[in-house]
Write a protein that binds this DNA or RNA. Structure first.
Ligand code: ZN
Ligand code: ZN
Ligand code: ZN
Ligand code: ZN
Lengths: 148, 148
DNA sequence: CTTGCAAATGCGACCAGTTGCAGTTGCCAT
DNA sequence: ATGGCAACTGCAACTGGTCGCATTTGCAAG
């Protein structure tokens, strides 16, 4: 099944209309295998469809995020970053010192989700977390003595 | 020790100047035992100090957040919410269905922080998380059959 | 107490993103 | 296939929040 078909089905399943604009926007997000910002995305989609209005892009991203099709995350870079959410959930560790961003397997969060569910009955939706902190190299670099 | 003195010390320790504006802004955040939004805070502080500029409030909140004095969190309400961070760290569970917000003890996140540190050497700063999902009452209400 | 500097404030310009509205279009029932 | 409605789009006005700069002010050295 093609990417376009899958995206259309996802939209339809969510009770939304399938329009050319949405297909273009969402497929662009999906094909970008990295996080994209709204301004970057607007520039990208306008190459194929110059008259597409920015407000349509924002509205599409917002509703898609509400549906869980894409993640909408503040990675600390000043602009909200969007990413298609496939089957493989992931999260990110962001170093406040060097700015390095690494991916984190969902299994680390799974135990938290399990605890919340078992102990509190809360079904957590741990879509795409940005966890800030200091990475190992930076800790070593800034002096092992300071490492609490 | 009074709240004002503690706040001033916290600012001074962080290498920042103690100004009347900052004291007013930060003490207001501190005394509010709940989350506050920037617009709400501006209205509040202007009762005591009408000429205080909104940009000063935003800058103060931003730098205080960078220093870890206050948390800066998107609780899903459309406006970023700020809260004074005391000794007792906490997080929140937010139900997407009924909108209910509950507090979560930091111990749930501690195990995650420990795992990240032990296995990856990443010193996570889990300041004030907003965890979205569906609460137990809503799960029960929307039919136990649908509960996966 | 006086002096000097760096940081903070206030003001105004600016801009990304949101919102309201009217026209258009996907989609379902007939 | 056709009709009708509700959702979506594009446009334009609006606005919350940011940024640059000149002035003020905290604060530490002398
Ligand atoms: Zn990601
Ligand atoms: Zn680092
Ligand atoms: Zn809180
Ligand atoms: Zn609920």
């Amino acid at each position: 099944m093609s990417c376009e078909t899958e995206t259309a089905i996802a939209l339809r399943d969510a009770g939304q209309k399938v329009t050319p604009q949405r297909m273009l926007i969402l497929c662009t997000v999906r094909h970008a295998r990295e996080h994209v910002t709204a301004p970057g995305l607007i520039e990208e989609v306008r190459r194929a469809y110059p008259f597409l209005d920015p407000s349509t892009v924002y509205r599409t991203l917002s509703s898609a995020a509400a549906l869980g099709l894409v993640s909408e995350t503040d990675m600390g870079a000043g602009d909200t970053e969007y990413e298609w959410i496939g089957k493989d959930r992931h999260h990110h560790l962001i170093c406040r010192s060097c700015g390095d961003v690494t991916s984190l397997d969902n299994s680390y969060l799974d135990s938290l989700a399990t605890a919340l569910y078992d102990e509190l009955g809360f079904r957590a939706d741990l879509g795409h977390f940005a966890i800030f902190g200091v990475c190992a190299p930076c800790r070593a670099r800034s002096g092992a003595a300071a490492g609490d």
